[in-house]
Design a protein around this nucleic acid. Structure first.
Length: 420
RNA sequence: GGAGGGGUGGCAGAGCGGUCGAAUGCGGCGGUCUUGAAAACCGCUGAGGCUUUCGGGUCUCCCUGGGUUCGAAUCCCAGCCCCUCCGCCA
């Protein structure tokens, strides 16, 4: 059911969805444009039929030519108007968010999310220091030089800090591969069409970096690439589910949040993330949403970090998801739950925009797949959680056991090993 | 960056500006034959929209967007993508 169909058949559902999500979209305008467009299209088709009849079977008489020339003018005029109407309608349709799954809790913002799981904070033997202090004193996180190089909200990792992040990436990808995902290494820049397909455009526009000259965009997550991978494709029976995992840098302008979370690396313009995307049959997507959430939690469990899982309420769902869960790790010094993953069931929305379908049986009718995505997980906040939860009295940072084999056996980063 | 060539149905590949939604081959589906299968032969086989007294009717789509024309898959312009050669380069 595309947004246009939804609006035609049940505008009240769309109104309710917009209200529940706290989104605004020009619904009435779309309805009006669509009414006019359909009327014009009917006129145009009648005229086209007339012209087709006349031009079948060879050169017409001069008399007919003259009449057809006039007809041609009318066709051109009407199709010009129709084109303008439909273009405007379709642009506005891009602002219609996904439907909301009936299971999604009511609510206005993240405070109304439902807590599904909440671990107790880890007992620390020290008064927790914030990650930027730990990182600086161990010489593994250099924020001033990141700012010098690239501006505010950029940072540099150094020595074992850089290696730790690299180990996390490799380890997390391996976990997904073990879970049956296929690793993808996509470009970190993408085209406008790809972002339209994943529904990051138009509504995420202000958060995206771009090169205007070439109309090429830096990805805000691997999601558009993993969704775009199969744009304009139809899966044959047996091909689903498709499970992908990719590591990419993520670029976000974060203009809206200037002034929030300024210290440290919780909110930055450039970060790394391991991302999962699953394509499946419609009836399978609830199951995959759970599994993908579990895979994000699995990372925290294996790192022995306190985890919280919340189901996003209607007002916190965002544009694309019809249902979703967030996964947080506890930051003892930050004294808050740090969102490291967001799992979303996007239903058929991205598949509709990207024209991705599947057949249940050979020769059957093609249906849109459901597409889900989840971080697995984002690195800066994971690094924060590790630094804050694994700090020791002597100023050292313990390396979580799960990672040691990925760091050539290193079990801690000691003071004095690295200096800024 | 320079010079050429090209983008047609699931694939391959034709297509003097009119009767082309598009030859032909392969693939797929159905049938004949066969114990069964293969081979051979026969038939069918793109998608989407609007409409329907459900027989059908009609429009759109030959990369995308403009243009020329009574009429465009066919001609012109722009863009995107692919290929070949040259240059540059991690």
């Amino acid at each position: 059911m595309t947004p246009l169909q939804r609006i035609r058949e049940d505008p009240d559902e769309v109104r309710a969805t917009l209200a529940a999500r706290g989104f605004d979209a020009p619904l009435e305008k779309i309805l009006e444009l669509d009414r006019k467009a359909r009327e014009l299209r009917r006129q145009l088709e009648d005229l086209n039929a007339e012209r087709n009849r006349a031009s079948r079977g060879g050169p017409p008489s001069d008399e007919v030519k003259a009449r057809m020339r006039e007809l041609g003018e009318r066709i051109k005029a009407i199709s010009g108007d129709l084109n303008a109407l439909e273009t405007e309608r379709d642009e506005k349709l891009l602002w219609i968010p996904n439907v909301i799954d009936p299971r999604v809790p009511q609510g206005k913002d993240e405070n109304d999310n439902t807590v599904v799981r909440k671990d107790a904070p880890k007992k620390l033997a020290v008064e927790p220091r914030p990650h930027w202090e730990i990182g600086e004193s161990l010489g593994i996180l250099d924020i001033p030089r990141g700012t010098k190089l690239s501006g505010s909200r950029f940072y540099v990792l150094r020595g074992a800090g850089a290696a730790l992040q690299r180990a996390l990436i490799a380890w997390m990808i391996d976990l997904k591969i073990e879970a049956g995902f296929t690793e993808i290494y996509p470009p970190s820049v993408t085209r406008r069409e790809t972002l339209l397909g994943s529904a990051h455009l138009p509504h995420f526009d202000e958060n995206l970096y771009r090169d205007e000259d070439d109309d090429i965009w830096l990805v805000p997550t691997a999601e558009p690439q993993l969704v775009g991978l199969h744009r304009d494709e139809t899966f044959e029976p047996g091909a689903l589910p498709k499970r992908y995992v990719a590591f990419t840098p993520c670029f976000r302008r974060e203009h809206m949040s200037a002034g929030r979370d300024v210290r440290g690396i919780k909110r930055v313009h450039w970060f790394d993330k391991v991302e999962m995307v699953v394509y499946c049959a419609p009836e399978e997507s609830p199951k995959w949403l759970e599994r993908m959430t579990d895979l994000a939690v699995d990372v925290l469990e294996k790192l022995e970090l306190p985890a919280r899982v919340t189901e996003r309420c209607a007002g916190d769902l965002g544009f694309t998801a019809l249902r979703g869960f967030d996964v947080d790790a506890w930051g003892p010094a930050a004294n808050e739950w740090l969102e490291v993953s967001s799992a979303s069931d996007c239903g058929p929305l991205q598949a509709e925009r990207s024209n991705i379908r599947f057949r249940r049986e050979a020769g059957g009718k093609a249906e849109h797949v459901h597409i889900l995505n989840a971080s697995g997980v984002a690195l800066p906040r994971l690094m924060i959680a590790i630094m804050e939860n694994y700090q020791h009295k002597d100023g050292s940072l313990e390396i979580p056991k799960a990672l040691r084999s990925y760091l050539r056996g290193r079990d801690k980063i000691a003071p004095g090993e690295f200096t800024l």
